[in-house]
């Protein structure tokens, strides 16, 4: 069992998951977003390969208006 943060929510995972599995389980199956892991950018093609560790922090980044 491990605890990770998804955005600002703490989540308990029964077993190790990849980033992709975490995203799928929380409704991020499509749409325009990017991911950071512990504040570092994670390229989309690696979501399947990166397994989460205890206390990892995954953040979803969206487009927004800007000047």
């Amino acid at each position: 069992m491990m605890r990770v943060r998804l955005n600002n929510q703490e989540i308990t995972l029964d077993d190790a998951q990849t980033i992709k599995e975490l995203l799928n389980n929380h409704g991020y199956t499509d749409g325009c977003y990017a991911v950071t892991l512990n504040r570092n950018f994670v390229a989309k093609h690696t979501y399947d390969h990166i397994k989460l560790n205890d206390r990892d922090h995954v953040e979803i980044i969206h487009p927004m208006q800007g000047g």
């Binding site: 955005n7 989540i11 409704g27 977003y33 990017a34 980044i61 969206h62 487009p63 927004m64 800007g66």
Partner: peptide, 19 residues
Amino acid sequence: ITVSLKRQISGSAPDNLVW
């Protein structure tokens, strides 16, 4: 047009109306 990025606050996927 210039655009930016933001971190999502809630836990589930939001709509993408702005995008």
